[in-house]
Design a protein around this nucleic acid. Structure first.
Lengths: 343, 343
DNA sequence: TATATTTGCTTAAACGTTTAAACAAATATA
DNA sequence: TATATTTGTTTAAACGTTTAAGCAAATATA
């Protein structure tokens, strides 16, 4: 099958012997077009299998009705669910969503930004890569004059909307729970300090430890990239201490899983010998043995709110953005890895 | 920050007192433009922070340099990895990729197709939703005159390129392995028969069972939607049989996980009492206890090949598509759930 | 020196829409 | 009946590019 020429409004106009402008207006239900003409136009459009050319209308109107989304990876429950909800809200309003993934690489993230700007998206909703420290490229979005909304991983210095959970308080929830279970020496395998959310989790951990008058031991706080492999490595590091912890709070579920594997391999009783808590509520946390206590980040709400934040700016041709944080409460889901039946 | 007008080639032309056409050519390194002018144009473009308007060039050239991807869900290792490789190949060639997910819903899939056609993509690479039986919407893609490439989940009747693994032989690999482990009564929790890949897995299972002269028992073949929940349900169904199986081959890893949960809950020894094999090599198969034997579908290669299949058609303005299957060999990854130390 | 070719640019049309402005015909208002 | 308003349409310009065609100046060829 060779590709036939696509039907345009001109073709419809020719069939009916009216102007292209009349066709355009008829298709948009302009009040100044007679019902008779509208009906005829729509009928012919259908017959000729007319598909509006988005490029032309976007060019003319200056609005592409496209919103770009940048996430570190789609292969995570949190992000794929956030994307789903962003789509749901935006499709409703006639926007289409372009998803791109950075794979945690700053370089790829820059490319994605270029791609999206080039595609003339009307706005960008982004969660930053672990690697990202330089904000220059994100500033580029702002100076392109389109709204930028950040979620989960954002930076105050960008001075744009941010939607995330309360990382600081989540750490409190976790430490409180572990203390409640009788743990006295709680370690923290955290993310990179330079990433705000992980830094907040660390701060929350430190303050909660202090609040409970537990010993704040530097060797119990470890920075990690939070992959499975690194979780294994950092768990081994903790086990090598003269004075082992009796609980480990890991700032990401994948790393928590790595830690769990090591504990299982070394036949260390979970949670009685060492209790374990992850973060993110990835589906596998309730699939592994033992199931892993984790924190639910409410991807559902975050996605919706991020989309709504964008809609707030859309269609306004004179807007100014500023640091506008929306912080949601997170929920601790206690599972086997930290719940001691007999304390 | 209010949104300033964007720089166009006209702005550049004005600065240098040359025509817009000259600017366009200079930016594209046309041989008929002097090096001096090219240099000057590029310098001014940089100074004014010029970003080409993709909509305009796409409209003019009739090529959007955008490729649409439709997958059932991004939240699966197979698809997210396939997407990643599709992107890698296509970005290299100057294409950008728009990802959409159907969430296994036919309705959403149709919407996605409309969206992509509306966005004027130059081609579509798709894997069909479980629900999809009606091919009308996919025919719409063909009649839009752009190439359609299917992977993993496709249909012969579409008469387009298809890239997938050898499902029929994969079933043979699995049954051979289970027989090798001494299993005599092998059940199959399969996907929907109407979906080609699952049908092929069922056929492969049936033929392999016959080949080994095992009893082909209708009650051992169960159709499922392959979610965790359904995997649990169908496993319970198998356990309720008077004559229980000693092995279960599940056509998807999520359902296999559900089955595993039931076996663990009922303290049934895996693999000695019942051996278990999944399909898809989702990361969690090597995370759970016991680890689950599964089939690696080589998402890496499938993504690359699908992208290359598209590139085959791209830029050709007269092409015809036909059923063109590329079938890759799959790899059986034997793990704890089916490997008996003492047989 | 006369002619052909190459170089470096300009002009203008085109891609498919949308929309402001114009205008004739029909209808309402006084 | 004369004028104002409404209705239903057309015309033409615009969005920012690309590109075929044209043309003058510079250079090569005979």
């Amino acid at each position: 099958m060779t590709n036939k020429k696509k039907t345009t409004i001109k073709d419809i106009a020719n069939v009916l012997n009216i102007s292209a402008a009349a066709v355009s207006k008829a298709l948009h239900n302009d009040s100044r077009i007679s019902d008779k003409t509208k009906k005829a136009v729509k009928q012919v459009a259908e017959n000729l299998n007319y598909q509006p050319n988005h490029l032309a209308s976007a060019l003319r109107s200056g609005k592409s009705k496209l919103v770009g989304v940048i996430v570190p990876k789609t292969n995570s429950n949190f992000f794929s669910s956030a994307i789903h909800n962003i789509e749901e809200v935006l499709n409703e309003k006639g926007y289409n969503v372009i998803i791109t993934q950075s794979n945690e690489s700053y370089e790829k993230e820059c490319k994605n930004i270029d791609t999206l700007l080039y595609t003339q998206v009307d706005g960008i909703i982004a969660s930053m890569a672990n690697e990202t420290v330089d904000l220059e490229y994100f500033e580029k979005i702002k100076s392109a004059g389109i709204p930028l909304i950040t979620f989960d991983r954002g930076e105050n210095d960008l001075n744009v909307d941010y939607i995330g959970i309360d990382d600081y308080n989540s750490s409190h929830l976790i430490v409180n729970h572990l203390v409640d279970q009788g743990c006295k020496r709680i370690a923290h395998i955290g993310g990179f300090k330079r990433t705000r959310i992980y830094n907040n989790r660390i701060k929350g951990y430190v303050d909660a430890i202090k609040k409970h008058n537990l010993s704040l031991d530097e060797e119990l706080i470890i920075e990690s990239n939070l992959t499975i492999e690194d979780g294994r490595k950092k768990m081994l590091q903790l086990l090598a201490l003269k004075n082992r912890p009796d609980a480990v709070y890991v700032a990401g579920d994948y790393a928590a899983l790595g830690a769990l594997q090591i504990l299982n391999e070394q036949n260390i009783a979970i949670p009685n010998e060492i209790a374990l808590v992850g973060f993110g509520n990835e589906p596998f946390t309730s699939m592994v043995t033992p199931t892993i206590t984790s924190v639910n980040q409410h991807a559902y709400n975050i996605g919706r709110i991020a989309a709504e934040a964008f809609l707030n700016y859309a269609d306004k041709n004179n807007f100014s953005q500023s640091l506008n944080k929306i912080i949601l409460k997170a929920e601790l889901l206690v599972r086997e890895s930290s719940f001691k039946k007999e304390k």
